[in-house]
Design a binder for these strands. Structure first.
Length: 211
DNA sequence: AGCACGATTAACT
DNA sequence: GTTAATCGTGCTC
């Protein structure tokens, strides 16, 4: 696979807003029993440090948040609402707690496995939410703390199709209803516009087919 | 030891 | 638009 390379630690060791924006169009890959499950990242949110009251780390270092204080390039997988798991990537230098929440992907590989997990939902609803994609990829507490940059890791991100600014919108982060301003309204959510998602998914498929 | 809350989703009305 | 489902986490007692 010469066209796709695994993102290295330097990618994640940067300002979280940059990482969140750049993750759009990258390919999230999960190897499960030798099978590749993957999807194009189409939505991501930045959570930045203890001063960000929307970030779990605003309570400081706890067993739950300690992964965010660790080195960049690791997975932070947390449980919420009594039933859902959400996937984040730790960013910035070790000691500074920050992460990017992956909110949506466009499925590319392992469609049958994903379909089986998300049935009877229609394909458009398979992975268009943070807990939906963890369900589709079978991710949970087992993956918390996983090093995405370890070559042996079965969860990582590959270079995909860069998304131009015209195709990207941003907005306030979702679900921070009880978080005070200004954190509640910080436009730290990045989305690939829907009409562009189709275009870039097709490009990826074409490249895969011709390689 | 007990309790309120939540970076959500699906199934309702 | 409303609500129930459901449990890890962190805070209080």
């Amino acid at each position: 696979m010469s066209f796709s390379e695994r993102l290295d630690r330097a990618f994640f060791d940067r300002p979280t807003l940059i990482v969140a924006r750049q993750l759009l169009g990258m390919r999230l890959v999960r190897i499960e029993q030798g099978q590749r499950l993957s999807g194009l990242i189409t939505e991501a949110e930045a959570y930045i440090g203890e001063s960000d009251l929307g970030c779990h780390a605003h309570v400081g270092r706890t067993p739950r948040t300690q992964v965010m204080y660790g080195p960049p390039g690791h997975a932070y997988v947390y449980f919420t609402y009594g039933m859902h798991w959400c996937l984040n990537f730790v960013t910035e230098q070790e000691g500074f707690p920050a992460a990017v929440l992956i909110r949506a992907i466009q499925p590319l590989e392992g469609l049958e496995t994903i379909a089986a997990r998300r049935a009877p939902q229609p394909p458009a609803l398979w992975t268009n939410g943070p807990a939906k994609l963890t369900q589709a990829l079978n991710l949970d507490r087992r993956h918390n703390g996983l090093d995405l940059c370890d070559p042996a890791s079965e969860l990582f991100v590959e270079t995909g199709e860069p998304i131009p600014d015209e195709c990207v919108t941003n907005s306030p982060r979702v679900g921070l209803n009880s978080v005070p301003e200004p954190w509640k309204s910080m436009p730290w959510r990045f989305l690939v516009q829907e009409h562009c998602t189709t275009e870039y998914t097709e490009k990826i498929k074409e490249r895969s087919a011709s390689s």
